[in-house]
Design a protein around this nucleic acid. Structure first.
Lengths: 159, 159
DNA sequence: ATAAATTGTTAGACAAGACTAACTTTATCA
DNA sequence: TGATAAAGTTAGTCTTGTCTAACAATTTAT
């Protein structure tokens, strides 16, 4: 039941989802621009996805996800977001690189990893206000390559 | 100067590095088995890598990395290890899945991400003995989906 | 309402990377 | 030492996914 789809096909599905936010209509030209591929590549992908029942698309017409296609697109997007949040908020990677990396990694991450990554982000955002203390210390460590002395002594005491 | 290599070619290089641990010789058949591809695929890859000056290989002979090839293989391996450690030791993913995921992700991770991931692992292993307290709490959270009350109150106090 | 511009499709080429089948070289061993 | 097995290569096919060039439909604007 769960056919695996290529990174490329996942990208096409995801882009339809992204482009149809708000709007009812998605055009081949929009997808072409968004994905950085030429229109014939989009047409060809849509033909394939259409045969697999993942998109609705008639010649010269609009593009739409089927329920199954949307399910898959959402799944890709969730992987993307789990990664992006982790990279940006925890590893402190600049937002643009975080998005780029997430776009590449979103196709290879396993369900187990996705789930735990999401929980990790959740865990980090859980505390009442702002970032937990240890994360601030880590971000300091990223810049200084050494730990504040107080952290070390505190660990000695508590761990 | 820095030609980018495909995931596939990176895998061939990495496998040579792994298989030559200790041994002086790497055989086509070993690579074939290690990578799960047939021998003609290995031969074909070696021809390409040979032309790029990344491996030493004469017909029916042994396979060896050139200095440049080794540099690249090491780089791939470091990405692999940064990911594997993070997945296994921080996200608490089972070792086998961690390796599988690392193998897939190692080809798409950016230098910035690799570096920060490695620092994160380093940061976590830094404290004198064992895992930091917050990591233990996170691992507990993974199982329970809720935080121990003491963690919350402590955060309120300290953050 | 029709000419021009835009959008989309078709057809065909190409590159990467895998495979099978057939052949060649090297190694083994009786 | 020569027969056979194992290892490696070559040639050719296939799939995926991209592209360009040429054509067709649709939209826009005069």
């Amino acid at each position: 039941m769960e056919a695996k789809h290529s990174a490329s096909m996942e990208d096409y599905l995801e882009s339809i989802l992204m482009l149809s936010e708000g709007k009812e209509a998605v055009r081949v030209s929009q997808m072409s621009k968004a994905l950085g591929v030429k229109m014939p590549s989009v047409t060809s992908a849509l033909t394939k996805l259409s045969q697999e029942g993942l998109v609705e698309h008639k010649r010269y017409g609009l593009v739409q996800l089927t329920p199954e296609g949307e399910r898959i697109a959402q799944d890709v997007f969730h992987r993307h977001e789990a990664l992006r949040h982790f990279l940006a908020e925890i590893l402190n990677i600049d937002p643009e690189t975080a998005v780029d990396d997430a776009c590449k990694m979103e196709h290879t991450i396993s369900p187990a990893t996705q789930e735990k990554l999401a929980k990790f982000v959740e865990f980090v955002s859980q505390p009442p206000e702002g970032q937990p203390r240890w994360l601030k210390i880590f971000h300091h460590y990223l810049k200084q390559a050494k730990l504040p002395k107080e952290y070390v002594t505190r660990c000695l005491k508590e761990d």
